[in-house]
Structure formats: structure tokens, C-alpha cells
Amino acid sequence: MNGPVEWIAAIGTILAAAMVAADFSRRVTGFGFVLFSIVACLWVYSGLTAPDGMPLAIQNGVLLFINLFGVWQFLISRKKKREIDKAAEIAEQAKEEVAQEQT
């Protein structure tokens, strides 16, 4: 298990994790989950084609569904988008209040 599929999946996993962890925006995080979903498919393929890869395939099959839920939450669900937008407004107000308290 050291072929191009695994390398692409590994690099994609690292990039997706960075996109989600950086939390630049709702859209970037959502596309991080899209990338996670794509590389999970690659890991499932890799696990199914490797002699002892069934645990890897099962793990990434489950992660695929979790990541698809993340895609739904961040890119598709309108209700969740409104909730996140409202939370962002409240967070911005809190940052401003804290900044004013420190001066």
C-alpha cells in the first residue's frame, strides 16, 4: 500500500484537515468536507484492494458518511446556514465588546 492512490489520498486528507481546522469560512470548511469525502472513497478503494486493508476500508466508509453530513451542514442545509450566519454575527459582536473592554 504505497502507490499513487494512497499518496493522493494522504495529501488530500492533510489538505482537507487543514481546510476544516483553519475555519477560514463556512464555504472553505464545507469544501474541506467535500475533499474529505473524495479521499475517503480513495481510502476505501485502497483498503478493499489491499490484502489486509479491510479495517481501513470500513473506517473510511464510516468517515465518508460523517463527511457527507459535514457537506450537508456547511454547504447544503439552508437552516444550518442561517444558524451559522447568526452565530458569526454574535461572535463578531462579542469580539468588539471584548476589544472595547480592553481599551
Score class of each variant (00 low, 15 high):
Leu56Glu: 07
Phe69Asp: 05
Lys80Cys: 01
Leu42Ile: 04
Ile84Lys: 14
Leu48Asn: 00
Ile11Trp: 01
Gly3Asp: 15
Gly70Glu: 06
Val20Glu: 02
Ala10His: 03
Ala18Val: 14
Leu35Arg: 06
Trp7Val: 04
Lys79Val: 12
Ile90Met: 11
Phe69His: 14
Lys95Val: 06
Lys86Phe: 05
Thr49Lys: 09
Leu42Asn: 02
Lys95Tyr: 07
Thr103Tyr: 11
Gly53Arg: 09
Met19Thr: 06
Thr103Lys: 14
Gly3Glu: 12
Gly3Leu: 10
Gln73Asn: 07
Gly32Gln: 05
Leu68Asn: 06
Asp85Ile: 09
Arg27Val: 11
Val44Tyr: 00
Gly70Met: 05
Glu101Ser: 11
Ala94Leu: 12
Val20His: 02
Gly70Thr: 08
Lys86Ser: 13
Phe74Glu: 08
Arg26Met: 04
Arg78Ala: 12
Ala87Thr: 03
Ala21Asp: 07
Trp72Met: 09
Ala87Gln: 09
Ala40Arg: 00
Asn2Gly: 14
Asp23Gln: 15
Gly32Trp: 10
Ala22Gln: 14
Gly53Pro: 04
Cys41Gln: 02
Ser25His: 00
Phe36Lys: 03
Ile14Glu: 00
Ala87Tyr: 01
Gly47Asp: 07
Leu56Ala: 13
Ala91His: 08
Arg78Phe: 01
Val5Ser: 07
Trp72His: 09
Val44His: 02
Gln100Ser: 12
Lys95Leu: 12
Met54Cys: 02
Val34His: 03
Phe33Tyr: 15
Val28His: 08
Lys95Met: 11
Ala87Ser: 05
Phe31Glu: 11
Gln93Phe: 07
Ser46Ile: 08
Met54Ala: 09
Thr49His: 05
Thr29Leu: 04
Ile66Tyr: 00
Arg78Gly: 07
Ala40Leu: 00
Met1Ile: 07
Glu97Ser: 13
Glu6Met: 15
Asn2Ser: 13
Glu97Arg: 14
